[in-house]
């Protein structure tokens, strides 16, 4: 039971990683692409490492997996913010949606 559930969670995570990759290609500008990268960093990494931890059961390996996950989740927003802030200060302007400014739908 445990291994199969773990496997399924790992595969689900890898699907989210691919979705993040697709978003990285499809989204129109740098600032929107950051959100696609966020999907990979949070849910992709979270599901893959949690799934592996379920497979490993209660052991030192699980602790290591969760420490890697903790590290990724601590550093990824820092790196993303540093990147976005640098881009903004370098003069990169986010493409904004003008039509949605008016109250609608």
């Amino acid at each position: 039971m445990g291994p199969i559930v773990g496997d399924l969670i790992v595969v689900a995570g890898s699907i989210f990683i691919v979705i993040g990759g697709i978003g990285l290609i499809r989204f129109p500008d740098f600032f929107t692409r950051m959100h696609a990268g966020g999907v990979t960093d949070t849910f992709g990494a979270g599901l893959v490492l949690t799934g592996l931890a379920i497979q490993a059961g209660m052991s030192l390996i699980t602790v290591k997996l969760l420490l890697i996950l903790l590290f990724l989740w601590l550093t990824s927003p820092t790196a993303t913010h540093a990147l976005a802030n640098s881009a903004l200060e370098a003069g990169l302007k986010p493409k904004l949606d003008r039509q949605e400014e008016a109250p609608s739908s």
Binding site: F31, M34, H35, G38, V39, T42, F43, W73, S76, P77, T80, H81, A84, N85, A87, L88, P94
Partner: peptide, 10 residues
């Protein structure tokens, strides 16, 4: 930032 869909940029 960690929540996809929103990023603090400045």
């Amino acid at each position: 930032t960690l929540t996809p869909g929103t990023v603090s940029i400045h």
